[in-house]
Simulated assay, not measured.
Amino acid sequence: MTEIELVNVFTHMGAGGNPCPIVVDASSLSATGMQSVAQHFGHESGFVLPASSRDSDYAFRFWVPQHEMEMCGHATIGALWLLATKGLLSGEQVRIETRSGAVTGYVDRGSSGEPSVEISQPVGKVVDLKRAEEEDVLSVLKLSRRDLLDLPIQNAVTSRVKTLIPMKGDRALNQLVPEPVQIEACCGRIGSTGLYPYAVDHQGEQRFEARQFPKSSGYPEDAATGIAAAALAFGLLRNGLVARNSERITIMQGRAMGALSEIRVRLGFADGRSVGCLLGGSVALAQSHVLQL
């Protein structure tokens, strides 16, 4: 029997967030068993395993219903939150092995005693799409250039490539109804793992709204996507939409799904040069399950 705890990650005012099944001791699970958990719940799922080297505290693996993923931001945050809540962390800084590379988690209990979690992401790389690739994306989303800000469509990556589409307003953003089959084909052509259209909500407060249409996760849309939000932060920096400092950037996601979520990103700099970012958000426990795998 395997205990799975369902958490909601990147909640906003106690609601919304991305549901995520977490197994805090997955040492007895095979790859098939892990995928079965993701298929049972229909969500990205996280699994905590012993580290394979002395340089790390844990190894995390991540599955969606159709395949394993190298990295999942909200599952990492959810797993660390659960470990902290259960008193299983040895300190406030945790080193994690993932298939996309090392991740550092920071856990701060603050005055409330409730764990607050941030995880590291590497410096983002942002590349403008070619004209034909832009037209491909616009066609799939049933948009024209008039619907966009005077900014390029870009592929951006910290852990996985996401395609950033700068829309003029959140109303049009939340009216998009793309076809998953077309999304998958388009992402394959442009080398992306998901389309991430976004709009400026309040530039002075560095608040933005976005939606995530994944390439092939087994569901058409995510309520909150940390890795996409981290990639977006570097796109916003590249396009001059956020200040060159470490003030919080807030990305709201999931409104069109009725699951408004809040993702927080802080860019890091050294000698004026970007050195990565921290990704964080609130977590809430939904319920526990026991499955025989």
Rank of each mutant, 00 (worst) to 15 (best):
E3G: 04
T11P: 00
G14V: 08
G14S: 05
G17F: 01
C20D: 14
A26V: 03
L29Y: 14
S30V: 13
A31P: 09
T32D: 02
G33E: 15
M34E: 08
S36K: 05
V37Q: 14
A38E: 10
F41M: 03
G42H: 10
G42I: 12
E44W: 12
A51R: 07
A51P: 15
S52C: 09
R54I: 05
R54Q: 13
V64L: 01
E68G: 02
E68I: 08
M69R: 05
C72F: 14
A75R: 11
T76N: 06
G78P: 07
L82D: 01
T85D: 06
K86M: 13
L89T: 12
S90W: 00
S100M: 03
G101Y: 12
A102F: 13
G105D: 00
V107R: 05
D108P: 01
G110K: 05
S111G: 06
S112M: 07
G113V: 04
E114L: 08
V117P: 01
E118M: 15
V127W: 05
L129N: 05
R131W: 09
E133I: 03
E134Q: 02
D136K: 07
S139P: 01
V140C: 07
L143S: 04
S144G: 10
R146M: 07
L148M: 01
L149A: 14
L149S: 12
L151M: 10
I153E: 04
I153P: 09
I153Q: 08
N155S: 08
V157M: 00
S159G: 11
K162I: 00
K162F: 03
I165D: 11
K168F: 06
D170A: 09
P178F: 04
E179H: 12
E179Y: 04
E179W: 02
A185R: 06
G188F: 06
G188W: 08
I190P: 05
T193E: 15
Y196G: 10
P197G: 11
Y198H: 13
Y198P: 04
V200C: 13
D201N: 14
E205P: 03
R211P: 02
F213T: 06
P214W: 04
S217F: 09
G218M: 07
A229G: 02
A230S: 15
A231D: 07
A231I: 06
L237C: 14
L241G: 00
V242S: 11
A243G: 15
E247K: 12
I249D: 10
I249Y: 15
T250G: 05
I251V: 15
Q253C: 04
G254S: 06
G254Q: 02
R255H: 13
A256G: 00
A256D: 14
A259F: 10
R266F: 04
R266Y: 12
D271G: 08
D271P: 00
S274R: 08
C277K: 09
L279K: 14
L285N: 12
L291S: 01
L293T: 09
